[in-house]
């Protein structure tokens, strides 16, 4: 099987990685770069635990080939907090007790951040719609919805905007 040397910017740092054709972005992040914050829950695009930003849009990293990311910019949950300061949506998830086992949380946070970046004042329906690809078996979702709604308000108040 062919291998490819790719150059990809991950959480702001440029990485040169050797990847086989069939390696997914998820596997590259977790097993080549040791970024284990992004989780594998199904390898099939269904659970959303693997959600990361690819060129500023959220994707299921289990359904993207690593080789497709040559020249791209990837951001994972590890990039959300800046210099020890949590992203408003991270803080809000804590404040609302919207995390239990925490396995879905990294993916939820990326989807939520992506939503707030494209729509700083989402309605509840829009939040539900944006998170429908992030399965959570623990929380019953409503705390997560509230956390995102509140993070939007905090974001609007402090004008911190997106994480870019």
């Amino acid at each position: 099987m062919a291998h490819h040397r790719i150059s990809v910017t991950v959480n702001g740092s440029v990485e040169s990685v050797d990847v086989p054709s069939n390696m997914t972005l998820l596997t590259m992040l977790r097993e080549k770069l040791g970024l284990t914050g992004t989780k594998n829950g199904c390898t099939a695009g269904e659970c959303g635990a693997c959600t990361v930003f690819l060129n500023d849009e959220p994707v299921n990293s289990c359904l993207v080939l690593a080789v497709e990311c040559d020249g791209a910019e990837v951001r994972t949950v590890e990039s959300l907090a800046r210099k020890g300061k949590l992203d408003p949506v991270q803080q809000s998830v804590i404040d609302h007790n919207a995390v239990q086992c925490g396995f879905c949380t990294p993916g939820v946070l990326i989807s939520a951040r992506a939503l707030l970046d494209r729509n700083p004042d989402p309605s509840e329906e829009e939040i539900r719609d944006a998170l429908v690809g992030n399965l959570c078996r623990c929380t019953g979702y409503v705390r997560i919805l509230d956390a995102v709604k509140d993070a939007a308000q905090v974001g609007a108040a402090s004008e911190t905007g997106g994480s870019r």
């Binding site: 695009g45 959600t51 959220p58 994707v59 299921n60 690809g133 992030n134």
Partner: peptide
């Protein structure tokens, strides 16, 4: 179709 993140691809 599916979810937002899936629709990105």
């Amino acid at each position: 179709v599916a979810s937002y993140q899936l629709r990105t691809r």
